[in-house]
Amino acid sequence: MTARPSPGDLLVVDGRASVQFGGDRALTFRVVSVSDQPTYAGWIWLTGYVLDRRGEATDKREIYVQLAGLRPAPPPDTPSRRAPRSRPASSYVRRPDQGSAASGDRAGLRAGADAG
């Protein structure tokens, strides 16, 4: 990636971008801002968030990297959203102060409200 990153870009930052991110120190980085501060040719200051495998931000950092060494990152592993489990009708337990909705008896609710 030789183009200047933009806020929102998701990047792989590894040893190609800077020796400090080599090996197991590589990270996935979501860019928040790109500095206009003058630097050496081909280098840039980025501010953003280090992401874990699920795409959750774990740390905010400012990094100094070589543009030529930055690569777009694949989208993070996102857990599939499961539909909420519905509770079986039989699992509902009526409290004594609730009365019977079927019979229209709300005396228990009124008594509880009057007592409070």
Rank of each mutant, 00 (worst) to 15 (best):
R81K: 12
V50C: 07
R85P: 05
A3C: 05
R16Y: 09
P88G: 05
G42H: 09
T28I: 13
V19T: 11
S33I: 01
L10F: 04
Q37I: 07
G48V: 03
G108T: 02
G48A: 04
R71S: 14
Y40F: 13
R54C: 09
S80A: 15
Y92M: 07
A68I: 11
T78L: 15
D77L: 13
V13A: 08
E56Q: 09
A3Q: 11
E62V: 00
A113H: 12
A26F: 04
R82V: 10
G116I: 13
V93D: 05
D9R: 00
L67I: 13
G15P: 07
R71Y: 10
A101T: 05
D59G: 04
Y64C: 03
R95G: 05
I63D: 00
L109C: 11
E56D: 14
M1N: 08
V19C: 11
L67W: 07
R106C: 02
V13I: 07
V31T: 03
S35Y: 01
R53L: 10
G8N: 03
E56S: 10
Y40L: 15
V34G: 01
Y40Q: 13
A73K: 08
G116F: 14
P72T: 15
T78I: 10
S35V: 01
P96T: 01
T58R: 00
R87K: 11
L70T: 14
R53K: 06
Q66I: 09
Q98P: 03
A102E: 06
T2V: 11
S91Y: 01
P84G: 12
T28Q: 09
S80K: 10
S18K: 05
S6K: 14
P88Y: 01
Y49C: 07
A113G: 10
P96V: 02
E56P: 02
R82F: 13
Y40I: 13
A17V: 10
D77K: 07
T58Q: 05
V32M: 01
P5K: 02
V34W: 00
P75S: 01
S91I: 04
